[in-house]
Design a protein around this nucleic acid. Structure first.
Length: 454
RNA sequence: GUGGCUAUAGUUUAAUGGCAGAACACCGCUCUGUGGCAGCGGUCGCGAGGGUUCGAUUCCCUCUAGCCACCCCA
């Protein structure tokens, strides 16, 4: 941890002695304002409706499929991710935000959600609950990747995990959920799906793959040679033009799947067919996290959306071995994570959500200190009566307040000035016609309710 | 992390080796207890640092950030 450098303050020599508190930051002229940290971003009020729509849909879909909300901390022991996600993965090797505390703990900001949920499942003995345990979460993840459009160092994920049952129907239903989530928001997507088999069959396949590519080693690019050593499965995803021919003749994962994984995969696909959720088999989907087994899938924005950068919206799969890796009893699990930043940016670009609105039907304006006091109290009356009212009490001039009332689309303005306070009345102005009527201050709320048809 | 492109007001942008302009937005006035329309006025800017030059927003270098491709994926 870096300690903040103490601020040095040197008083000008000619100045008369001034007592300067060195712990107080003294602003200087022409000082640069502090900027966002690289890869971070502000979610502004103008984006709020899009995030709200996304959040609401997440709640709706989770509830519909019987998933309960939970939240794990943003900070975890580094070991959780090293063991869970895998030591030899990009996420852990180069994208983890890690540090050591003064107390000597090795901590990291979470790069994904599954490892934490599984940790929590073990720690809170959730295996004693009816299985499977179905939970969802919604929150920020951190990866120290190079930022780009649609790729931030802090990004938001909606994830669902189903732990405690290994049936293929669970894999299928998770995929259906992810697909429906974006579909119901108005985004067409494509599912790419593959099976990695069990860790044994995957290991066998990996060996076959390595020996195949080793024999062609001289034809590999430098990047691919590295992959051969580190993560041979990723060779299948290489975009190196010279690789296409080699890839075509390479051993296929399907041929190395054990019988059980093969049957499992077939059932997943059958279930998807049954529901009519479209998918593409893609042997190159291998996922960048080590914990996956059997089913893996990724969700991409449909082709007409691909002019937008970063079309991958999310992904997931089965992780039957993860529980043991993290020290729990053998328990199957499966889940997915969806990138909300990317989903929100599509909602915006396609105008799928009503733009931000601060419209109100009724606006409360005041004049003079007495009027302001009365209006402040009247505002509370309206609020308790459940009538949304706009106000800018901070502005003194009636003119400025009427401007705001107009901007916010108010149909009626309620005006209280000195005179009204003394008379115990209020003015109700029809903003369309400009007609005004004077009513008893005690009856304003009822009167407005009547006008609103409530 | 590697390579490339870019950086002018809150936003979208124009021009220029010699005073940096516009539109929208914001604030105010015309209208001192009343909004929309109109007219007028105002605030705010060359990402940071260095170099070349009489003079740099403009040319060069470094840094920073964004974007694009790779790497990966959310």
């Amino acid at each position: 941890m870096k300690k903040p450098e103490p601020k040095k303050v040197t008083p000008p020599s000619s100045a008369k002695p001034v007592s300067v508190d060195p712990t107080v930051f003294v602003p200087k002229k022409g000082m640069q304002p502090i900027q966002l940290v690289r890869g971070m971003r502000d979610l502004l009020p103008s984006d709020a409706p899009y995030w709200k729509a996304t959040r609401d849909e997440a709640d709706t879909i989770a509830a519909a499929y019987g998933y309960e909300w939970m939240e794990t901390p943003v900070v975890e022991e580094t070991a959780l991710f090293v063991r869970g996600v895998g030591k030899i993965t990009d996420i852990v090797e180069k994208e983890l935000y890690s540090w050591q505390t003064p107390g000597g703990e090795h901590l990291s900001l979470r790069p994904e959600g599954t490892a934490s949920v599984v940790r929590s499942y073990i720690q809170h003995g959730m295996f004693n609950q009816p299985q499977p345990v179905k939970v969802c979460y919604y929150g920020p993840m951190f990866r120290h990747d190079r930022p780009q459009a649609g790729r931030f160092r802090q990004f938001y994920t909606f994830g669902c995990e189903c732990i405690g049952d290994g049936d293929a129907v669970i894999d299928a239903q998770l995929i259906i959920m992810a697909y429906n989530f974006v579909k119901e928001l108005g985004i067409e997507s494509t599912i790419k799906i593959n099976s990695l088999g069990t860790s044994e069959s995957r290991a066998n396949y990996k060996n076959a793959l390595v020996s195949y590519f080793r024999s062609k080693r001289n034809k590999l690019s430098e990047e691919d040679k590295k992959r051969l050593l580190k993560n041979p499965l990723r060779l299948l995803d290489s975009k190196d033009p010279g690789m296409q021919e080699l890839k075509a003749e390479a051993p296929q994962m399907v041929d190395w799947l054990d019988e059980e994984s093969k049957a499992h995969f077939t059932r997943v696909l059958e279930y998807l067919d049954e529901v009519g959720v479209p998918y593409q088999l893609d042997p190159f989907i291998v996922r960048g996290l080590d914990y996956y087994s059997k089913t893996v899938f990724e969700l991409y924005a449909a082709s007409d959306d691909q002019e937008l950068a970063q079309s991958a919206l999310g992904g997931g799969g089965r992780y039957d071995g993860l529980m043991e890796i993290l020290g729990g009893r053998p328990t199957p699990g499966a889940g997915f994570g969806l990138g909300l930043d990317r989903i929100v940016s599509r909602l915006k670009e396609k105008n799928l959500v009503a733009p931000p609105s601060n419209q109100v039907d009724v606006f409360l304006a005041q004049l003079g200190e007495m009027g302001r006091k009365k209006a402040l109290a009247l505002f509370e009356e309206f609020r308790q009566a459940g009538v949304p009212v706009g106000e800018v009490f901070a502005k003194a001039s009636i003119k400025a307040q009427m401007e705001v009332a107009n901007k916010r689309g108010a149909k009626w303005a309620v005006i209280i000035g000195q005179k009204e306070v003394l008379d115990g009345t209020a003015v109700i102005r029809d903003m369309d016609s400009g007609n005004q009527e004077i009513v008893d201050a005690k009856k304003v709320v009822a009167e407005i309710k009547k006008k609103l048809g409530q």
